[in-house]
């Protein structure tokens, strides 16, 4: 494995650093040399017009898609092109833009899948040492119930995940990710299509997780109000590149950012006012 040399330290503790990532799909160039860093323990927003390459970036970072060139360094390790499960075991969990629960499993089961490196995931343990994973199951179960209660899904624990409402699926997605005990969460539009009250709740959950557990967040989000309220840093992407980084206040004065949003089709008057 290569050493993380390409990304020099910028004086802050960066849990994730991407450098000059390029990825194209046939003729479509989704990432055209994207570089930025995410500070450990921060809630960083990734914003940009539709088609800017945000989801592609999340895919590349999480190992779901290989970059044609560039580098991804997570937690001091070069994870460029490593398979998803390996990146996940390293402590980076991502959620999907469209909720993807395990439909025909119950809410509780959805959570119980998440803990990593479970002893009961080995066939030989299952067949010959069942006792070894029973206590582990019990532990995970207690934790899962606790997490469900935190996210207000306790009453739904024995429902099939496919029967949840859109908003509940969003909550489940986050609860399931928390169960995996990640160092960093990359969440792709966690608040798309949910009502303002639930947006508040999700935002509170994210802030609470950061404060209580020190989880780093990289959050793709279009709602600039939410971004302003929650995020420490903002990374703006346009046409596959990083356009600017900084706090929301800094970016508001950045003409390039404003124009990217105006020409990119997403206009949020309040955020620019």
């Amino acid at each position: 494995m290569r050493q993380p040399t390409a990304v020099e330290s910028r004086g802050v503790d960066e849990i994730l650093a991407v450098h000059e990532l390029r990825r194209s799909f046939g003729g479509v160039r989704a990432l055209t040399g994207c570089s930025f860093g995410v500070e450990r323990g921060s809630i960083t927003a990734l914003i940009g017009p539709n088609g800017a390459g945000k989801t592609t970036l999340a895919n590349v970072v999480a190992g779901a898609s290989r970059p044609q060139s560039g580098q991804v360094v997570f937690d001091g390790r070069d994870v460029t092109g490593r398979p998803s499960h390996e990146v996940a075991l390293g402590g980076l969990i991502r959620t999907f833009q469209i909720s993807r629960e395990y439909p025909a499993m119950t809410v509780l089961e959805n959570l119980m899948v998440s803990p990593q490196r479970q002893a009961g995931e080995k066939l030989s343990t299952v067949l010959f040492h069942p006792r070894r994973f029973r206590s582990e199951e019990r532990r995970h179960l207690e934790r899962a119930v606790e997490v469900l209660a935190e996210f207000g899904l306790y009453e739904k624990r024995n429902d099939y995940a496919r029967n949840l409402s859109g908003g509940q699926k969003r909550l489940l997605e986050l609860a399931r990710a928390v169960m995996a005990d990640p160092k960093m969460l990359v969440i792709d539009e966690p608040m798309a299509g949910i009502n303002p009250a639930l947006i508040e709740r999700l935002a509170d959950h994210i802030i609470r997780l950061r404060d209580a557990r020190g989880t780093t967040f990289l959050m793709v989000e279009h709602n600039l109000d939410v971004v302003e309220r929650m995020c420490d840093k903002v990374v703006v992407m346009a046409v596959g590149q990083t356009l600017a980084t900084g706090t929301m206040a800094e970016l508001r004065g950045n003409a390039a950012v404003v124009s990217a949003y105006l020409t990119g089709g997403v206009v949020d008057v309040r955020a620019q006012g």
Binding site: A64, S84, H85, Y102, V113
Partner: peptide, 16 residues
């Protein structure tokens, strides 16, 4: 079963 339900998600949760 998680893999049956959604292979990519299971993979994203660290399942080989």
């Amino acid at each position: 079963r998680a893999i049956r339900e959604d292979l990519d998600v299971a993979e994203a949760y660290g399942k080989h």
